[in-house]
Amino acid sequence: MTNKETIGNIKELLLDEPSAEDIARWRQDQRVGVQKLLTQYDKRQVKKQRQQQAFEHRLMFEKQAWQHGARLAGVDEVGRGPLAGPVVAAAVVIDDSFDMTIVHDSKQLTEKTRLGLDQELREKVVDFAFGIVDASEIDRLNIYEASRVAMRQAIEALHTPIDGLLIDAMTVDLPLPQEKLIKGDDRSISIGAASILAKNYRDSLMKDFAKKFPGYGFEHNAGYGTAEHLAGLEKFGVTPIHRQTFSPVKKYLN
């Protein structure tokens, strides 16, 4: 043991990937600050191990397909509940090199984390694509069918040939084997990745709509029926991106 290493230096090294020899040496260091750092490090390692185990579990469906030489796309949609804006679906294909253990159902991630993952996800997946169905088409079809159309669009926009689909709680009209997974974005890495990309993409669209239709708070509420949004409907009326078949939008027509 040597005390030439400052606590600050040890802290930096512990945030990286220290060697087993370094860890063993620091465990012999009697300084309280060093032992506190090691306690924090141990907690991080346990968290990382649990995250890795959960990641492997959520790869179960993909791994089964890979073992048979098949490639699956995970599919999810976002935007069923809002009063305004489109429903957006994403389809994502990954392979066995994918290692982003943090990928999860987008609803379980903070906005900052979710947005921070977007570019890395786009770079690390094998392929991804989006499908978008606007408010007028949602009114014509109903939201359930519009979601299925958006999913189909996303799947058909992929450039990578696929052998089957993992879909969050739905099926689509395509001649492909499909696994309909309840809470699929929490059970499949592919679907979880799709949920993140779809959410980020739709939120970006709604921020653009906020510039075109100010006063509804679309940049904050993504079209959901918040107090700010309802106040905007009361004051400014219905916009072209509002879903006219949705209550309470119908109340403000004409």
Score class of each variant (00 low, 15 high):
I189P: 04
S190N: 14
S190I: 02
I191N: 13
G192H: 12
G192N: 11
A193Y: 14
A193C: 11
A194T: 08
S195K: 09
S195H: 05
S195I: 01
I196H: 03
I196V: 09
L197S: 03
A198E: 07
A198Q: 07
A198L: 10
A198F: 08
K199A: 00
K199C: 00
K199G: 02
K199V: 04
N200K: 01
Y201I: 00
Y201P: 00
Y201Q: 03
Y201D: 00
R202K: 10
D203F: 00
D203M: 00
S204W: 12
S204L: 06
S204I: 13
L205E: 15
L205D: 06
L205W: 04
L205C: 13
K207H: 08
K207I: 04
K207P: 04
K207R: 14
D208H: 04
F209A: 08
K211I: 06
K211S: 04
K211P: 12
K212Y: 00
K212L: 09
F213Y: 15
F213A: 11
F213S: 09
F213T: 04
F213C: 14
P214D: 13
P214A: 01
P214I: 02
P214Y: 01
G215C: 03
Y216L: 02
Y216Q: 09
G217W: 11
F218Q: 01
F218A: 04
E219F: 05
H220P: 05
N221Q: 01
N221C: 10
N221D: 10
N221S: 09
A222T: 02
A222V: 10
A222C: 09
G225F: 11
G225D: 08
T226E: 15
T226V: 14
A227G: 10
A227P: 15
A227K: 15
E228V: 13
E228N: 13
E228I: 10
E228D: 14
H229T: 11
H229E: 05
H229W: 08
H229P: 11
L230C: 04
L230E: 15
L230I: 09
L230W: 06
L230Y: 13
A231E: 15
A231M: 15
G232R: 03
